[in-house]
Amino acid sequence: MENTLDHGEASFYLMGERAAIVHSMPPATLSCQRRIWWLADVLRTRQRYLDIVPGMNNLTVVFDPLGCDGDALLAELAGLWQQADSAVLEPRRVEIPVHYGGDAGPDLAEVSRHSGLSEDEVIATHSGTDYVVFFLGFQPGFAYMGGLPEQLATPRRAEPRLSVPAGSVGIGGSQTGIYPAASPGGWQLIGRSDTPLFDPQRAQPSLLLPGDSVRFVPQGAHHA
């Protein structure tokens, strides 16, 4: 399509009259996501853009179409992408206490059945792993995390729940995450946390931010 710059592993294009996108070819990797975070940080310091939104190995930059030239922005993005080293910033470590199983995690048995692990092994595996927040989306403060051990990957529920309680910890395909607020959802729920993930009255409303390293900490005995 027009207005596309191609740089082998990444492409740069406009979406509508007021967004520019950096898009890296799949499969998604953490090293590419680090370049996305670096690029987002650099663009934020330039204070010319309305929104800078990391996705999974892509970045959407929203601009004022009457104050900013989209093609010039694409060239700027392509130039920065070449410089983007995946400099590893020291990640913030966030621990999230979780009550696994029972009413808090009604799908723990399903994940156990699907993985062939016992429920205790599912909990030990899920809480024994460091996860990385790739980006936020879906709902305020919802973190898309990478790093779920392959054996825990479980397909989404055939029938999504009409309401998933706030704080629910779930597995959807090869991803894991927490619902900051009650919402409909199709993930397999294995536990729940009381930690507030999103508070619009806080200066930094989201507990989790891209680049964070997250660890789930089991609370008390679970009641399967």
Partner: peptide, 28 residues
């Protein structure tokens, strides 16, 4: 892969019927 979306984006889910996103649409 999940990506940023904006009001005005016309998505086509697998049923082939378009959805125009508006102000309350999710961000990705």
């Amino acid at each position: 892969l999940s990506h940023g979306v904006l009001p005005g984006v016309v998505q086509v889910p697998p049923n082939g019927q378009p959805i125009v996103l508006l102000a309350d649409a999710q961000t990705t």
